[in-house]
Amino acid sequence: MKNTAWQRELKHYLIGGLLSLILTVVAFAAVLGVDLSRAATLAIVAVAGVAQLIIQVRYFLHIDLSRQKREDLHLILFSLLLLTLMAGGTIWIMGDLAGRMY
């Protein structure tokens, strides 16, 4: 019984690793391999990056929506909210300011 748990968890990591690898390759290929518009390339990189973040959180950090203790999840969601506010706010403010300098 113990062994099956071990195998299951090992598989978990391996799936995570494989998916991350694929997404990494996709992102690099979008920039290096194919000739797309800049916007399309950026979109692919962004989607692949976010997907990989979710994959690693799911498979390496073992966090998912169902079984997690609520406080951990609250904490992560709140962190993401503040990260968005601070980073997004900075980019908005500084970008707006730069736009008015020229």
């Binding site: 503040l82 506010l85 601070m86 706010g89 908005w92 403010i93 707006d96 300011l97 736009g99 008015r100």
Partner: peptide
């Protein structure tokens, strides 16, 4: 309180909308 910090530099020169 994490959404208001810009009121310390309203006069910095950003757009009115900000």
């Amino acid at each position: 309180s994490f959404t208001v910090w810009l009121h310390h530099f309203f006069t910095m020169g950003q757009s009115a909308s900000v």
